[in-house]
Design a protein around this nucleic acid. Structure first.
Lengths: 179, 179
DNA sequence: TATTGTTATACTCTATAACTATA
DNA sequence: TATAGTTATAGAGTATAACAATA
């Protein structure tokens, strides 16, 4: 298990200490004087919406992701970019944008940061003088092997209430929405 | 179906014209000179992560949500707050924060905006002098009945590739992650 | 002392417009 | 003319600290 010390590549940027989920009130008995929602809040309609549930689930996982991946100096988008470069040596910025649904201007600083940390290298593209091929360095590859393991572990932990079959089903159904 | 004209409450804030998804290249035949990812990008690892898939699915739905709900002047969080007030008359800011995972300072401006648009009213809380009960006005109720129908329709459209049973399963599995 | 609501503010994320170098 | 990468910048979203009024 890597520590911050093992990964001097971790930048100085602090990770915001996410607030803990606010504990719900112990449900005082309602005196029934007013209307409905004095004690319990009904969110049943929102819970029928896929967008709401997908967003809440994603944020819940991302919250833990930020905490566990902080030692690697990787936030979700950094991780997505690094892992895509790791598994696709020579990939270009433009391809990353298309694959990950990012905008080119937002990728520039990110790429520069990863390069200055020694995690990736930029090499001339073999066929297109405009493009630049991105490659994970040995250091970047080592980092990502560890980071990917950490991410996978965290995900298993977050989906502990799902059976492996349900987890597979969930991934498949989500992809039917956005792919 | 309501138009912007039917809803003068819609604020002047413009809704960002979301860029259309970038079309993937028509896949030139690879000349096989370099490494892997010159043409096709492998994102199979990312697609095994729940957080990635949940986020992509959520953003995909939210993109259409922004477009369809723009005539009502409601963005996702505005909608969540309004629908919760609508279904829980008298609910307080603090309860909204707990139920929707929002931070109190970020709710202040939102509530003020909804009030100035005449969609909600703030009434003294019956039992707690510190708190303020939030209520949808007649105008707000009318707006939300329409907005909720629009949101539900859009969600059905976004989940066309899912059977009703799969849709129900997906909602249930997502809730097992964040609830 | 604890909580509700608020102000001020800072940081991050995401978006658009416009430029350059190359195809 | 179209595309890859970049620069500058604006806007939205999300976070913390600290305060007043009330419990």
């Amino acid at each position: 298990m890597p520590s911050a010390k093992d990964n001097p590549a971790a930048p100085s940027k602090r990770v915001s200490p996410r607030r803990t989920a606010q504990t719900a009130k112990p449900a005082k008995p309602a005196v029934g004087s007013d209307v409905a929602a004095v004690d319990k809040v009904d969110t049943s309609y929102l819970q029928s919406l896929m967008g709401y549930n997908a967003r809440r689930a994603a944020l819940s996982i991302i919250e833990l992701f930020l905490e566990r991946l902080a030692p690697y100096g990787l936030k979700p988008v950094d991780f997505s970019v690094m892992t895509t470069i790791h598994h696709n040596p020579g990939v270009t910025s433009r391809q990353l944008c298309a694959a990950l649904n990012l905008l080119p201007p937002n990728l520039v600083g990110l790429i520069q940061s990863l390069e200055s940390r020694g995690l990736i290298e930029r090499k001339p593209h073999p066929h297109d003088g405009r493009a630049v091929g991105l490659h994970a360095t040995a250091k970047g590859q080592t980092l990502m092997v560890q980071a990917e393991q950490t991410a996978s572990d965290l995900e298993v932990e977050k989906t502990t209430r799902l059976t492996p079959a349900q987890r597979k089903t969930l991934l498949s159904l989500l992809q039917k929405i956005y792919l």
